[in-house]
Design a protein around this nucleic acid. Sequence first.
RNA 1: GCGGACAUGGCGAAAUUGGUAUACGCGUACGAUUCAGAUUCGUAUGGAACUUUUCCGUGCAGGUUCAAGUCCUGUUGUCCGCACCA
Length: 795
Amino acid sequence: MGCDFKKIEEKWQKKWDEIQPFKAFNFSKKPKFYALIEFPYPSGQGLHVGHPRSYIAMDIIARKRRMQGYNVLFPIGWDAFGLPAENFAIKNKIHPKLVTKKNISKFKEQIKSLGISFDWNREVNTTDPGYYKWTQWIFSRLFEKGLAIKEETAVNWCTSCKCVLANEEVIEGKCERCGSGIFQKRKFQWILKITKYAQRLIDDLKTVDYPERVKQQQINWIGRSEGALIRFKTTSSDQILEVFTTRPETIFGVSYMVVAPEHKIIESNTKLIENMEEINKYKTEASKKSEFQRSQMLKEKTGVEIKGIRAINPANGKEIPIFMADYVLIGYGTGAIMAVPAHDERDWEFAIKYSLPKPVVILGGKDGEAFIGDGTLVNSDFLNGLDTSKAKTKIIKFLEQNKNGESKVSFKLRDWIFSRQRYWGEPIPIINCKRCGLVLDKNLPLILPETEEYETSEDGESPLANLPWIHVNCPKCLGKALRETDTMPQWAGSSWYFLRYSDNENDSELASKKAIDYWFPVDWYNGGMEHTTLHLLYSRFWHKFLYDIGVVSMPEPYAKRTSHGMILGENGEKMSKSRGNVVNPDEIIQEFGADAFRLYEMFIGDFEKAAPWSASGIRGCKRFLEKFWDMAFNISDGEIRPDFQTLINKTIKKVGEDIEKLKFNTAIASLMDLLGQIKKTGKITRDELEVFLVLISPFAPHVSEEIWKRSNFEGLASESVWPSYNEKLIKLEQNTIVLQINGKIRSKMVADSQISGKELIDLAKKDEKISSIIKNQNIIREICVPSKLVNFVIE
RNA sequence: GCGGACAUGGCGAAAUUGGUAUACGCGUACGAUUCAGAUUCGUAUGGAACUUUUCCGUGCAGGUUCAAGUCCUGUUGUCCGCACCA
């Protein structure tokens, strides 16, 4: 009997839309389960075969939870602000709003064709004013609490996107999106003080269930280091040079200071500095280098001495020179360091190049290189003879007493640069008033104005700057004022979208406290590793802020996070248009059906690892479904046959446990195995079919639903009850026992699982093969693993 | 350079506390069905040899153990993250 999968799939997708078996209920007597996938950016290329890997996996989990009696929230939405839609709009002269709308409907159609059990009533869209009203609302609260500030800082500038980028968006010195080089530029920007939450973002990782590599990556990104802040007086009357160091105990080994090219000591001492020309030249050259170029040059250090001012070592009062060099970064610590060449590799190289002294203050190093280990202090006055850690404590105490420094924790994490010179984003609800300063526009949502000109200008001004929209009256003094023209980055809307799902139609709050308390935390969140130091970190930060102001009741949004691997092209390379190895899910579904597609994506390999697509691999999944279809109409009334009790109970256990561990590939393998065993008998009983249908339905829901219906089971397969297994039935009455001599397999036998170890050994000795070997041999040891093996050790 | 992960047939991959290595699928070969092809079904499929049997096999070299894909030490390779972070 053939099977028209396409027709069946359409039929059940329509039916599910009507009956809505996947609707989540706010407040229910059932236990709640919140399953979340990263909502997609609806790009013009449509759905990629990589997207569904996450959706199908969470769909399987969501479907299983519903069958286990949970009130499941499994929502989807659209992360629709962002550059690609805008670039497409510019190129094709279509408003990004229209492009986005079109893309969303395409995505929606594609996702629906996969039969994912999303609750479509909960759909959200970050570009909807009813949604971004609340994104702006959160920004406003951040502003009120002083966590959103406008400041001139060094920013990453992408010349191609004509836009600033957050630190997290710079990958190997290049733009995350377009791959162009990034230059450092000073600019007034909106900044979110994520660094205020750095410690908590590390600490609370202990309270959540994330993969170890995700935690580690976040910890490394935040980059906590303990040390001291030390203030060096200078020969310029009121100029103090502040440095951060993790090795304050080496202070007697300081032979010079270094400041970053962007350091403000230059501007405030132009009169004292004797070689301004030389310095300005160095500064200009440094600013011309992109961050990528700067890191490519690695350890080749350059610098220039700042003549005219010297620093004074607070430990011994000695005067030392100050250099400017681009191996010191303005963005980390204080943008200045105390250089200890004998005990720091970078300072060592610099000191060699510029013939500076390298006084040794810790014993233990070799000649000709910097010693960075621990040891005993020498040449260090009152620290002499102490070991590194004691010296550290003592010097910090000394500095504190003299008010020249204190212990300090520093983070690599930089504040989040939050403004973008772009059209297609949430307007920042701030009004610039000459009299009142920055004033919140409380009239939300602040609607993104209509325009035909959404191209960024050459000078890097936002397209909004040219619109009459910017003229507004100050809400405080009612005088003439101007609107902020930068927009928020794409990461804004996605930093809280999971909250909106809990109560997506609320227009008086971002979501009611009651709904949030009911659904949160998210029980299981699956997403890509590429978001570990972007969305995942940003959203944890926002959630903590919302916790602090009482909007949410727990400090972490996600109880459990997992990550899927990428789906690669058939050649094992990353799928991309330019490589010509992109697989279009529409074509696959057209040819093999959604169920085969779903099965194959889960069967392809370890869920957490990258896996290459295989056109022939999906064929096997399709065959399996066809076999199943044929079998299901070769049904005979009756219970589970005794011969199948063990295997079926085992399979229930295996499939259930494997789903929880994301081992979808082995869950499917065990279903294939079971079907193969049943098929050998030429028929399937009704009870066997029922169990099999329930187990396979999360993986292949359409065909399961159809067979369920045709076999006259009650209701929907999607609403059936997940079976339990009987542990007693899993244990075999008889086992194959492996018989070994000196650890090598020599024979096998079948034995009752009840019999004792001693009896087993006796039986083994009687085995024909074994007895012929051990005859005339000295048995030194007899080892028995019940119901598994017997091993005789002979000389 | 630092941190993390991984290494198993022709391919994607399985393998509980150390206890039958290669489950399941793909591919391939042969056979059946067919006018033929596609599909489907059946059988076989790590390597080697003197083939009812034996030996060798989980990147490489050692070690622990009655027993190692699994544990330990060293080593090579691949991938990922960070990268002058003071």
